[in-house]
């Protein structure tokens, strides 16, 4: 057998689940869709004493809008988000980005919250969360707290979650009128992690760009949002790309050098901004 020996709890209520986590602390690991954790177990790169499987937590299987926020429960699989008309209409950037996560076989099991909690620096959904200013709702025995996405991702595969906390819900703000969106990335093969990716939102009024939100994935240990690049983009898309090239400091690896990743960031910035602008204006190209 590939995975190391572990104890297995599959609670049926969130209360039980956070009790398990409180009792086990660092020794426990939450199992959601398992599309990142099971490979780590099979490779024995992770050796938790206990798995807390949240797949039986029916109470976290919800996806709906409330007071301007799309609420995604921790049991919601990526495929459901991909196929949801409500998500496509209300948070189209999330709908566009989720299609880039792995393959359908992965998205049938993988969850949105699981991808956020795993915090792979090249993963798509953390980038969307940071670009949109999502809120992460976490629960422990001590209660509930809300963490803004920009404070949630603290390093490579590392988040602000404490060992006794369970990410129970991700909240994405509904797109107001006038905003366009785009998620673009470059991969070696369809379904791979991004060499570099950009999540963009552009607000247009009277055919002029008034506000921009941009987050980069694959360009640092966490999704990166740079206010300077966003401000540059309000004036000029090409200048924003150059600003991104100058300010980002991605690592180079087997798949792409740091320089190539910076180049991709510059090119993808322009591509994402132009597409977002067209969507904000109903098809008008950016001058």
């Amino acid at each position: 057998m590939k995975p190391p020996v572990f104890e297995y709890c599959d609670p049926t209520t969130v209360e039980e689940a956070v009790d398990c986590l409180a009792e086990r602390g660092e020794a426990a690991k939450v199992l959601a869709g398992g599309q990142s954790l099971l490979p780590l177990l099979n490779l024995r790169l992770a050796r938790p004493d206990c798995l807390v499987d949240i797949n039986r937590l029916d109470e976290l299987d919800y996806l709906h809008e409330e007071a301007g926020w799309l609420r995604v429960g921790a049991r919601v699989r990526q495929r459901r988000v991909e196929e949801s008309e409500e998500v496509a209409r209300r948070v189209p950037l999330l709908a566009e980005a989720v299609r880039y996560v792995g393959h359908p076989q992965i998205r049938n099991r993988g969850t949105v919250c699981g991808s956020l909690a795993h915090a792979d620096p090249a993963a798509e959904l953390p980038g969307v969360a940071v670009a949109l200013g999502a809120r992460l709702l976490v629960r422990s025995r001590l209660g509930t707290r809300e963490i803004p996405a920009e404070q949630f991702f603290t390093g490579q595969l590392t988040t602000a979650l404490r060992p006794d906390e369970l990410l129970v819900e991700a909240q994405f703000p509904v797109f107001p009128a006038g905003w366009g969106w785009a998620f673009v990335e470059v991969t070696n093969r369809h379904g791979d992690y991004a060499l570099c990716g950009v999540a963009a939102g552009v607000y247009v009024e009277d055919r002029r760009v008034r506000d921009v939100r941009l987050a980069y994935v694959g360009a640092g240990p966490t999704p990166v949002r740079l206010r300077e690049v966003e401000l540059a983009a309000v004036e000029d898309f090409r200048a924003a790309g150059e600003e991104a090239r100058a300010r980002l400091s991605p690592d180079g690896d087997l798949h792409a050098s740091a320089e190539f990743r910076r180049h991709l960031a510059a090119v993808l910035t322009g591509r994402a901004l132009r597409r977002a602008f067209e969507r904000a204006t109903g098809g008008e190209p950016h001058a």
């Binding site: 590939k2 398992g34 599309q35 099979n42 499987d53 076989q105 992965i106 049938n108 099991r109």
Partner: peptide, 18 residues
């Protein structure tokens, strides 16, 4: 790859108990 409730999934990334 197998079907789980009709949807394709990786059976190496699923525990039998699940």
């Amino acid at each position: 790859t197998v079907l789980l409730d009709g949807q394709p999934v990786r059976s190496c990334l699923l525990l039998a108990v699940q």
